[in-house]
């Protein structure tokens, strides 16, 4: 709706929108602010918004007490590893479906989507049993594989929609120009697909980072990522608001930043390309 409106109208819009926006963002803002307070100030009545003694002590305590780095490292390895694994498996599959479609391509895509809709709780115990018998319980590799599998349909779909946008004629031109399949993928397809692959990776890291069913149920002390680390704060002994906030801020900060970069891709990824 590219149309000029009066400044007054625009100011009113701005006021309403920002009020609502800040209201929605407030819980996150409040968490971040509280993470810099002392425990006493954190539960002060009335609440203190900005004029408190800013301190980094909570961050230090959280790191010390809960070995934050280990959980962070687990999250990084699990989210990164599952994404990388997923991309390696999904790129060839998506390539085939986008550029060499057959009559069954659509069915395969739809079927992949349907596996994403399997409720996790319905297969919790079988997976649990399999993990025990394979010795994968509470290992990073086990979680990596599970998260890769639950997100694989999304990765394939996203890549497929991106690849679909690369005109077939360009690949045919490369073939006419004498490129072998390897050269075609290396010099033409990959450079053109990199933006799409990058956004797929980004979205998938976010999804894997925040996954909270399998990470809670398949890990204990060794492989627990940040989701499980935070959940451990729900036990009564961990009820220190400032420290809880510091831990929360550390857990969400990396993904908040990644997430802001991937807004647009998010829509495409989460709607399986149905909304672009």
């Amino acid at each position: 709706m590219a149309r000029s409106v009066s400044t007054r109208r625009k100011a009113l819009n701005t006021l309403i929108a920002w009020t609502i926006g800040l209201l929605i963002f407030f819980p996150i803002l409040w968490t971040i602010l509280t993470s810099f307070k002392t425990e006493a100030q954190a539960i002060n009545d009335p609440p203190i918004f900005f004029f408190f003694d800013w301190t980094l002590e909570n961050y230090a305590v959280v790191q010390e007490r809960s070995d934050y780095m280990r959980f962070l490292w687990n999250s990084v390895i699990i989210a990164g590893g599952s994404t990388l694994l997923g991309i390696l498996i999904a790129v060839p599959a998506a390539w085939s479906m986008a550029f060499v479609p057959s009559k069954r391509t659509k069915d395969i895509l739809m079927w992949m989507l349907s596996t994403k809709m399997l409720p996790a709780v319905g297969v919790l115990y079988p997976i649990y049993l399999l993990f025990i018998s394979l010795g994968l319980l509470d290992t990073r590799i086990g979680l990596m594989v599970v998260l890769m599998l639950i997100n694989l349909p999304i990765i394939v779909w996203m890549l497929y929609t991106y690849f679909k946008e690369i005109p077939t004629e360009i690949l045919e031109a490369a073939r006419m120009d004498g490129a072998t399949l390897k050269e075609e993928i290396l010099y033409i397809l990959t450079p053109m697909a990199i933006p799409g692959i990058a956004s797929t990776i980004l979205l998938n890291i976010i999804l894997a980072w925040n996954e909270a069913f399998w990470t809670l149920n398949l890990t204990a002390a060794q492989a627990a990522p940040l989701t499980a680390f935070i959940a451990s704060y729900s036990s009564p002994e961990g009820l220190f608001y400032a420290k809880l906030s510091a831990a929360s801020t550390m857990a969400i900060a990396p993904i908040l930043i990644l997430g802001w970069f991937s807004q647009k891709q998010l829509v495409r990824g989460l709607t399986f390309g149905a909304v672009k």
């Binding site: 929108a17 920002w18 609502i20 926006g21 800040l22 929605i24 963002f25 819980p27 996150i28 409040w30 968490t31 509280t34 976010i206 980072w209 925040n210 909270a212 809670l216 940040l226 989701t227 499980a228 935070i230 959940a231 704060y233 729900s234 009820l239 608001y241 809880l244 906030s245 929360s248 857990a251 969400i252 993904i255 908040l256 990644l258 997430g259 802001w260 807004q263 998010l266």
Partner: peptide
């Protein structure tokens, strides 16, 4: 503004639950 509005989606579910439960 759009970034502010979208932010809650990127917060991991356990953090969301814990922050709301205790701090709000």
């Amino acid at each position: 503004l759009r970034i502010l509005v979208i932010a809650p989606f990127f917060v991991m579910p356990t953090v969301t639950a814990l922050v709301w439960k205790n701090m709000f």
